[in-house]
Design a protein around this nucleic acid. Sequence first.
DNA 1: AGGCAATGGTTCAAATAATGAACCATGAGA
DNA 2: TCTCATGGTTCATTATTTGAACCATTGCCT
Lengths: 266, 266
Amino acid sequence: MSTIAKALGLLDLFSEARPALGLSDVQRLAGRDKATVHRHLVALELAGFLEQDASTRAYRLGPALTRLAGMRVRTVPEVEMLRGVIESLSRAAGELVHVSRLQGFDLVHVHHAEEHEHPVRVSFDPYGLPPLFATASGKAYLAFSPGGLLDLALADPRTRLPGAPAPNRIEIEAELKQIATRGYARNRDALRLGVSSVAIPVFDAASRAFATCSIAFPTGRGGKATEAHLARLLMAQGEEISQTMGGTVPPHIVQLWTPPQERAAS
Amino acid sequence: MSTIAKALGLLDLFSEARPALGLSDVQRLAGRDKATVHRHLVALELAGFLEQDASTRAYRLGPALTRLAGMRVRTVPEVEMLRGVIESLSRAAGELVHVSRLQGFDLVHVHHAEEHEHPVRVSFDPYGLPPLFATASGKAYLAFSPGGLLDLALADPRTRLPGAPAPNRIEIEAELKQIATRGYARNRDALRLGVSSVAIPVFDAASRAFATCSIAFPTGRGGKATEAHLARLLMAQGEEISQTMGGTVPPHIVQLWTPPQERAAS
DNA sequence: AGGCAATGGTTCAAATAATGAACCATGAGA
DNA sequence: TCTCATGGTTCATTATTTGAACCATTGCCT
């Protein structure tokens, strides 16, 4: 393991629950030698990734992070475009919003927004690659993709949770069909206990699903009604999201996502 | 120099002007061996600090940055409190807003906001320590601090630009007096050519200046009128900023910062 | 007071991981 | 077809990282 990885790994020890850590805390959590940890902390501090509280000597996340994150938001075009729409979606929903892109059968993180103040939050790993069949995003993608993909996905062990059997073909087909007519995919406690989500696909310029947008929330916060409410918010932004990423939503899905009252009005 | 510092230094090569860099680009800019640079890039990518464009193979800033920056904003209390007020100030001013805290005679970065879309931006280094006498922030601090501080500051070579002579005592005293009656400090091209700023002090619970808030803008964008306009915006938020950081503004300065029409109305 | 246990931080020989010259593979352009 | 630049890899050499033991300071309990 590279020193770089070890040092950067220390940053992941900081969390909502533990915003400031002393040398000993870090040492314990990381399970490494104190001297090593100390040198890493100092190096991170020098680079501005951490800062040390002058009075308590505890370390906390540093200003270089906000600077570089700002840079990323302004310079990575995809993110820059998405930012506005998913931030307002997050604010409206009061929950975490994600956009992931498909790379093979991997769902890779593109951007997320978490514009709310709930003390209970869904944690997530922006560089993890969750299995397709364990997420609402994955199912949303499959439901709006050509049938052949499902066979490939079923054959690939990486699309299911490690150790789990391949999903039952009949059942999955039924669920995907339901998603296609309902307009969004849902998930309760499948990938991680206590986390639920709703998701819709994002379409590219050729109207093929190539990414997904999802809202994740603690299962405890939302019943059936909440879920439906979040799904409505999500679908209402569906066309905008695809357009922002340079794509177009097929007309029949635009229909599906348009709220009944607006459809009546037009 | 530690490997960690070398690797993290690579992140600083990414900028508004160069959002994506190939291996060779980074190698050239960093002036290090290709193999080394490559291993560093891979390590950073693995940690999510960079991501690689699948088609061009170029690297760009990665999602871990937004995640950690978000964490910082939510967990570092000072920043969390300040965020709202300085973000809206930045939006209103259409320029970069900074808050720095004094540590001895060092101006250390606390937080900044840059909520605007001008293509011409003031770049800055959140962990640099600019000399007091070369910044509006430094002068704002001194102008609202007890006189004894000025003597100490004049004696300390770190408070002026490297190589520059100590400021003329009479002149500086006149300028500080002017700042104290005007309510804000100003600066044109002193620290860096083409960058101007206006600044006010932030007061602690004992009504002593202990930090500063400034608006920086390209000199080319603002004449005298713009400067005065930005200063008014800044002063209008002055009391809120001090309160947010747990302090109180002395009454006579609240007066000074209150716009004439509001003073008339009350 | 005094002693105990944590804390943050430092040292230096031993061990491990970083380094870079040379190498390969691929693709664009002449 | 040849050339040049690119991204990426290898492996012996080298230099940096590592960690047990150490020190200094602080807070706590008797």
